[in-house]
Amino acid sequence: MKVAIRFLDVSFSYEQVSVLDKASFHVHEGEFAAIVGQNGSGKTTVLKLIMGLERPSGGQVEVLGGSAYAARPHVGYVPQLPAYDPSFPVSVRDVVRMGVLHGLTEKRGARATVDRALERADVSDLADRPYAALSGGQRRRVLVARALASEPRLLVLDEPTANMDAASENRLYKVLGELKGSTTIVVVTHDTGFVSDLTDAVLCVGDRAGTGRSIVRHTAEPAEHAPPELYGGKAKRVLHDVSVPDPGRCKECSE
C-alpha cells in the first residue's frame, strides 16, 4: 500500500516549548485516520506539519511521496470554524471558490469544479446564500466543500464536529464516508474515547516521551453502546491500553 503521510522521528517546538519529540507514524493512501488527544496536546501542530504550514525542528515529514510543502496543492484543509467577520460580504459559492486557488493562479475550469464540490458536500442549495447567514453546521459543510474544490488526494479536518448538532454531524460523516477510499482522510478530534466507525487508524498525541510528546498508534473496536449523538451511534471505542508499534513504515507499505 502506498503511504500518504509519514513522520520519521519528527520533533517540533514553539521557541523553548517542546511539542513533539521524535514522533513517528504513517497513514496509507485511502485510509481514514483519526488523530486524537487532549486539548493543547499538539494535534493542530501535527496538522500544520502535514500541511507544510510549520517545519519540523528535527526528523522528516513526507506527504504524498514528497515534502509537505510540495504536496500542498493536493491537500484539502478544513480548519476549526475560523473566526470570521459577519459583515464580510461573501457568498457560499465564493467561499468554496477559494479552494480552487493555487498560489497566484486558479485551477482551470474553476466554475465546474466548484459546482462539483458544492454537490459532493451536499451544499448546492446554499450556493448563492451569504456565508454569514448560515448555521454553524452549514458553515462547516461549506468549508468541507471549499477543501474538496481543490480536488485533494488528502483531506485534513481539524475538529470537524465541535459545537455541531447531531443531524449536521451525521450529514458530514455521510459525505466523508462517500470520500473514503478515493481520498485519504485525516480527522483531528479531542474525543479520546470514541472515533467514527470509518476510522482505520487511531493516532494518539499526548503520551510524554522525553521532553515533548510522542504519537502512539492504538487500535479501536466497534462500540456496541456508543452514545447515539456520536457519529450517529456508529462509533468505535479507542483501546488506549493496546499500542501498535509504528516506526513510520509497516510490512504492507509499498515504497
Binding site: P79, V95, R97, M98, L101
Partner: peptide, 17 residues
C-alpha cells in the same frame, strides 16, 4: 480571488499557497 481569500481566512489562503 487571492485578496478575498487572504482577507477572509488567512491561514487557509496560506495553505493554498
Amino acid at each position: 480571488r487571492q485578496v478575498e481569500a487572504v482577507a477572509f481566512d488567512e491561514e487557509f489562503a496560506r495553505a493554498r499557497g
